[in-house]
Nucleic acid binder design. Structure first.
Lengths: 198, 198
DNA sequence: CTCTATTGTGAATCTAGTTTCACAATAGAG
DNA sequence: CTCTATTGTGAAACTAGATTCACAATAGAG
């Protein structure tokens, strides 16, 4: 039975979303064209109507992740005016992403997405740097309106923040889900808070 | 021209060491049996005299890394009696490992080493946990003899330490070597020190 | 020195996945 | 409603790498 015919624009979105999902679920290895096609109920060859090749598809997935990630920042900004709360909420959101098997932080650093592709790795680097810059901004604003301590450089604070999230994602992934993220946060957040928040 | 015949014990060491080297140099992807063999001047098929398959070889490499990593701890312990200095030295050693393209922290978390192998991933988790426990011990001792602040739990301090090193390794790797590790340490170490050291 | 267990080799095989292609169906512009 | 550009399909071709195997060479035990 042939799959329904859909315009490329729609299919591309479907494919990217599906690939992202599968990447999230599967702590395990490679994501095969065949498998993505299967889940969408179409033949592998059909994917090639919408992406030049597997590599192009993966790049699209990366782009998808980028927007998802940055939207988090935006939401957090709108949710509260207090920098401390913003950071705490951002952390929560990350933990949720990790736990719901939407291991964005893991995916982001997985070889799966990189492959040989030097250019894509660079792009990833830019994404992470951009994200760090956003955190930095939140901290800077918080300092300016007196919500956060002024002795810490925003840049350093952002790195510290990253240092809470990223190891958590990896340890959780490595352990196959046994790693106690709650404990990790309970351990590290107070220290971070002591440094950064009044 | 055939390669020299050597006893398995020797060859195994050679192979593991070579594989580790290549893994270190190559920021790029997969490590092929063929390539390892080539560098050793032997035929790919010869490797199978010394390892059941590629997977077994990779496990051996992981073991190799484990010993290298733990030796670092030991050296640092012998180098100084002061916990603060020990931690600083341990950090330096990690940075050196990262910079000398011996990106152990990166390798350790690369999918390359994990593959499908659930068991190996678990082993890796145990290695990292063991490492964290060692750092924890250094901190605990430091607290007991009054070198370090007592308000911070050793467990939390170890996580924080990990949070400095691991992101540095990844960012450095992603950037292809452009990431400024010195700056990263200059930013984060003082914060860590403020929390943990007197 | 000799003889064999061990190690090395090239060619062949296996496996697994991506990609291409000639042909089929159909959404939707007109 | 018709017709065509677009999308979907199965089979086949390609790649690429790991692994096996029958045979060759030799280190070193005796």
């Amino acid at each position: 039975m042939a799959a329904q015919k859909l315009p490329t624009a729609v299919r591309q979105d479907q494919i990217v979303e599906t690939a992202f999902q599968m990447l999230s679920e599967n702590a395990t290895r490679h994501l095969h064209v065949k498998d993505i096609a299967e889940r969408l109920g179409m033949a592998p060859s059909a994917l090639y109507r919408h992406f030049r090749n597997r590599d192009a598809l993966m790049s699209a997935v990366l782009e998808h992740i980028r927007t998802k990630l940055y939207k988090n920042i935006e939401v957090v900004r709108q949710g509260s005016d207090d920098a401390g709360e913003r950071l705490r909420e951002l952390l929560s959101r990350h933990i949720r992403l990790i736990r719901e098997r939407h291991g964005i932080p893991r995916i982001l650093f997985s070889d799966e997405l990189w492959g040989q592709n030097q250019e894509r790795r660079r792009k990833m680097f830019r994404i992470v740097n951009g994200y760090l810059a956003e955190v930095e901004d939140i901290v800077r604003e918080g300092q300016q309106n007196g919500q956060l301590r002024k002795e810490i450089s925003p840049r350093a604070a952002a790195r510290m923040f990253f240092g809470m999230v990223q190891p958590a994602a990896l340890l959780w992934h490595m352990s196959g889900g046994d790693f106690d993220i709650e404990e990790h946060i309970a351990l590290t957040w107070p220290l971070f808070a002591k440094l950064v928040i009044q």
